[in-house]
């Protein structure tokens, strides 16, 4: 965990249910019954969420610094 908090955003319309994000950050993201990702949390201090966002081949996930709003992944 770090001092920085990130806001995670998901566009379900762009998600194809590949599941890479779920493998990387299972505490933050899960697959719903429809096979499409859903966020378990809105914000996180776990750097794994940034890896999950970057891993998404669909560009369906984004992460922003909670304090500045700057997009970081």
């Amino acid at each position: 965990m770090t001092d920085t908090t990130w806001t995670i955003q998901l566009d379900e319309g762009l998600c194809s249910g590949m599941g890479d994000c779920v493998r990387i950050a299972p505490d933050a993201i899960e697959l719903g019954a429809d096979g499409i990702a859903t966020l378990r949390v809105g914000t996180s201090t776990d750097p794994a969420v940034l890896d999950a966002v970057r891993a998404c081949p669909m560009a369906a996930l984004a992460a922003y610094r909670a304090d500045t709003g700057a997009q970081v992944a």
Partner: peptide, 9 residues
Amino acid sequence: PADVARYRR
């Protein structure tokens, strides 16, 4: 990636 998301929409 942010542009890709935007253009996909």
